[in-house]
Design a protein around this nucleic acid. Structure first.
Lengths: 189, 189
DNA sequence: GTCTATATTCCGATAGAC
DNA sequence: GTCTATCGGAATATAGAC
């Protein structure tokens, strides 16, 4: 495989990841990607046979990203609260650029996604949930974080606050997102 | 205006409301609506000049619905907790049928919505937020509900739990939604 | 192996029939 | 006033050029 090919394929994934968070799976086209790369839209079909395959590639890439983030946080010397804040930072970045998270994006479009990728969305969410769950459990064990519910339920509460928080931020403003973020963290202290 | 016309227009709105919660604004077509009504897709253009106008009609309809619900709850003799549960019931119904709420739907597609309707989405969310806010304030005043944050922040926390909760329910299952719903209510008691 | 020219399908929309 | 036949364009996808 030549360097050019690898680059193009990676570039397509990179742009696709951005588009799916900005507009959603159904609202971006191969043309959006090919324009940015100055190639013809059909060239994208060489790297990804169909949009369905591109989506699978995007989701695989996100899963690698989450796994690396998980390992990175695990290996770090950060406190549980700091680890949590590192994760939450990602959402604040999304709110800044009017993007929503990949989880909210695929969940909102779920009923229109090709069957072949639905299982991947389940896996992706599983990764995110278990990553946060571990951090919460560690925080509780060390006395840094406090909550009554199960770690999984707490994770779901936090994740839904963040996922819908960045969605709302587009419409009612970043101030609301910030209020949500601060309150969600402060609930755990 | 004949009875037929009124019926058709109302039917289009009814079906459109269902489609936007099921698939999102970009993923449903006039054909989806016309098929269900056994008319040609172009007939929908008579009642709503363009998809943009249909969306405006759908959002107006939701605003009326929220306003009526607000008045209804206000006039009722229910406790604040019962009023809150009435509102939350709507989300449980959505989770049952793999639908997401109108707020999450337009928020997820926001960057692709026609400019002419963006203001309506702000108004719609404003209605929902202020409805819940009033209930929370009443509950706190009467000692039925308890929370530290401002009523608005608490409203945002609850609304994001519910909105993303029904989104997640599509993928990770209704059990997770139920855990979220129960925990969200129990936080307020 | 990589990309382009082209086909096919579907969508939203207009013009005109009844 | 209500709806249908049809258009123009965009999106995905295939076949084939380099």
């Amino acid at each position: 495989m030549t360097a050019r090919s690898t680059d193009t394929k990676q570039e397509i994934i990179r742009i696709g990841k951005s588009l799916i968070r900005m507009y959603g799976y159904n609202a971006f086209s191969y043309a959006d990607i090919s324009k940015e790369l100055n190639i013809k839209n059909a060239a994208v079909h060489y790297h990804f046979r169909g949009k369905e395959d591109l989506l699978a590639g995007i989701l695989d890439n996100y899963m690698e990203e989450y796994q690396q983030l998980g390992k990175h946080l695990q290996a770090s010397s950060l406190t549980a609260l700091q680890k949590l804040e590192k994760f939450i930072e990602r959402y604040s970045t999304l709110a800044e650029c009017n993007c929503i998270c990949i989880i909210g994006s695929v969940a909102s479009d779920y009923n229109t996604l090709p069957e072949s990728v639905k299982e991947k969305t389940t896996q992706l969410i599983g990764l995110a949930v278990s990553m946060i769950e571990k951090i919460l459990l560690e925080g509780k064990r060390k006395g840094e974080l406090h909550f009554e519910e199960s770690a999984r339920t707490r994770t779901l509460l936090l994740l839904t606050n963040l996922a819908a928080g960045v969605q709302l931020a587009r419409i009612s403003g970043k101030k609301d997102y910030d209020a949500i973020r601060k309150a969600a963290i402060s609930q755990l202290k």
